[in-house]
Design a protein around this nucleic acid. Structure first.
Lengths: 236, 236
DNA sequence: CCTTGTGAAGTAATTCACAGCC
DNA sequence: GGCTGTGAATTACTTCACAAGG
């Protein structure tokens, strides 16, 4: 499949092809590095970072190797340095303005969620269509009408939109976001969004997560014998 | 690794080894099948189900084949029949009582979230430690103190717990859940939980999802030329 | 010593492609 | 003719294991 014409930029070539699985773990490493930095640690080994991130050491080393060799053999990785590199790789060197569509339970919670701002995502607006919600205040923001979305997106140069509407309204919300110029969507509605090829969608379906847990619970109950059968027990 | 002593139960053997990737898609198929059923469709081809689920047809067929051959060649799958099988496989033949730890923005939203009950997950209780939140009403439930958790779990035979606390309180919340007998945890706090081997954890980190989107946005900006550069545009 | 970085080996998931059946 | 079910081929991801370097 790949017939490299020249050998030049082989490193460049590699750097640009970070596996999806690695990309999904970078934010976790980022979080762990922030914690380590807060603790005042100045170096960390792949083993230690792996422990903190809940993966194994080989994976950490391979993941980090995709975008450069920032470790010192015999010592480990310099926390500050690595943090800079990971942050740069993740595009977290600047803030990302985001809009939320849907100011129901979930949308409201997301708008007030501290974890977003802390990690460089600023909610610059939240919109809805219901008369009851438009105008409500949500932690420093006022819910605006969905018709204000194009203006909001243009004004703050928003690239990322969050869909937190009921399922029936989600496709419309996505269409509006795309028309307004948003190119990445985080979708909490339990439907598969239909968007142009250049728009990236990530789906978070909370019920699906529970269903996956239920699958394993169910199987656990069905399996006759496997490791300790130890059924639930209250300590005292 | 597996040296099957006998050939008997080869089907059984297979059925019990559904790949994780397939398990993660079953809930999506389940949702699509519910929609199809609501539309009154009685059969569906792998192609159509794939379209609805946002995957490809070969994947659908392989996924479904792991737990049996429920299709008819030349026709497709009978919606009702397949729904029963998927539901059984997912352990959705009965309701799953769940508890939520943490009644902040997210925990409150989750407690009121209709999508859970609709898909067989009943929130039987929500607990917190803050004086301000304990006692508040949340859509039919009253927030109870975290110390009531063991009783709550025992009373409703809860197997699944949801952690929606601030990061600093999450490990404690998980410990309490495990001690109370919960064996599956859905964790929204951005930390890696340390739990016994028999407890399954699924992590949902909302900021991580945004960071993955940001990674691709950033890379898009960095890439010199690739497909239409079409930068955002407001329609009107 | 210790720990990284990475080819090589191993495992898992996806996709192909077609025989088999309605 | 159309569509499933599935081995085989391919691709992606993980883990091993060790040479190289501080």
């Amino acid at each position: 499949m790949n017939v490299p014409g020249t050998v030049r930029d082989v490193a460049e070539q590699r750097r640009r092809n970070i596996p999806d699985a690695t990309v999904a773990r970078l934010p976790v490493y980022h979080r762990c590095l922030l914690d380590l930095q807060a603790e005042g640690r100045d170096t960390v080994s792949s083993e230690q970072l792996a422990e903190a991130a809940g993966v194994n050491a080989a994976k950490v080393r391979k993941d980090l190797s995709y975008f450069g060799s920032y470790g010192t053999r015999g010592v480990g990785y310099e926390v500050d340095r690595l943090l800079v590199e990971v942050r740069r790789e993740l595009g977290l060197t600047h803030d990302w303005p985001c809009v939320i569509v849907g100011a129901g339970n979930l949308g409201s919670a997301l708008a007030k969620f501290a974890g977003f701002r802390e990690r460089g995502f600023t909610i610059v607006g939240i919109v809805d269509v219901a008369d009851g919600t438009v105008g409500r205040k949500l932690g420093g923001l006022v819910v605006r009408h969905e018709s204000d979305l194009p203006q909001l997106v243009a004004e703050h140069d928003v690239a990322i939109g969050v869909v937190a509407t009921p399922p029936a309204a989600a496709q419309g919300a996505a269409d509006t976001l795309v028309a307004a110029g948003v190119t990445s969507i985080l979708n909490f509605a339990p439907i598969v969004l239909d968007v142009p090829a250049h728009v990236m969608v990530r789906q978070v379906d909370l019920a699906v997560e529970l269903q996956i847990l239920a699958f394993h619970e169910e199987r656990r109950a069905a399996t006759p014998a496997r490791r300790t059968p130890a059924r639930r027990r209250v300590p005292s």
